[in-house]
């Protein structure tokens, strides 16, 4: 891959490259800048969290990476190939209401893999049902699942596609605190087992320090990269160790006190 002469932010080979990506919304004839010249490399198999003040454009950044929005200027490339539209090789997990309520758990997981043979499909459904611990709920419809189960289902549906990149847009934001902690460790377990590249947007600093290899800190709107923070603690991370707390405090400081509210 003939990469440009840029300094790779990760020691691993770059999976995703963003070069001077700006994005502006058009509203009532006025242009509202949301992203301001963002450049970022993400390595293959890396777990990257994006944090920043609320409304700063974290989700917009993710939507541009995933091809749902086209950058106003600059470019996004994955494996050296420019991203122009959403692609089944890169799946987004939405914050809320992402599963189809008219399909069962099984139907949702199968949604993107209808091209496979029945045997293969069944096998993959069984595998991911087990991975996200939804055994026994295969024939249940989403309205009868809890919020956490719905999010696990969304993750399973995404993984069943065998994507090389997984985008998660505050996937656990709407869940209660206990479920959120459990979902984090489940996601880590899955990531360690399958080693996809994960880009995870959150407003929760603890979540970021617990999960990420690297944390991208955005400024308030229009968002620029304020800092990229590497977390070199091995998993599972002890959330009361001094190293962990040091990272957390550093990060909070970088985001600024305004964000601690």
């Amino acid at each position: 891959m003939a990469a440009e002469a840029t300094i790779p932010l990760s020691s691993r080979k770059a999976k995703l490259q963003m070069r001077d990506v700006s994005f502006a919304f058009e509203r009532d004839g006025k242009s509202i800048p949301v992203l301001d010249k963002i450049s970022l490399d993400i390595g293959d198999g890396e777990f990257v969290c994006v944090v920043g003040p609320s409304g700063c454009g974290k989700s917009t950044l993710l939507n541009v990476m995933a091809g749902f929005l086209s950058p106003t200027t600059g470019m996004v490339a994955i494996n050296g190939e420019t991203v122009r539209r959403p692609d089944p090789r890169r799946i987004m997990v939405f914050q809320d209401h992402g599963v189809f309520p008219w399909l069962t758990v099984e139907g949702n997981i199968e949604f993107g893999i209808s091209g496979l043979s029945t045997a293969e499909r069944k096998e993959r459904v069984a595998h991911y049902v087990q991975m996200v611990r939804l055994q026994g709920f295969e024939h249940t419809y989403p309205p009868d699942l809890s919020g956490g189960m719905k999010q696990r289902l969304q993750v399973a549906r995404a993984l069943a596609m065998n994507p090389d990149v997984l985008y998660l847009d505050e996937p656990f934001g709407a869940l209660d605190a206990i479920t959120r902690v459990m979902m984090r460790s489940e996601l880590l377990r899955i990531w360690q087992a399958e080693r996809r590249t994960i880009i995870f947007v959150t407003h929760d600093v603890d979540e970021a320090v617990q999960l990420a290899d690297r944390i991208v800190v955005l400024s308030s709107r229009p968002a620029r990269i304020q800092d990229v923070h590497s977390v070199d603690i091995p998993h599972p991370r002890n959330i009361s160790s001094s190293g962990y707390l040091q990272h957390r405090d550093d990060l909070l400081q970088k985001i600024g006190l305004a964000y601690s509210a």
Partner: peptide, 13 residues
């Protein structure tokens, strides 16, 4: 139709 259903449809190609 919630935008998220449309986006999932687009994402899954």
């Amino acid at each position: 139709i919630p935008a998220v259903y449309v986006n999932v449809g687009r994402n899954f190609g």
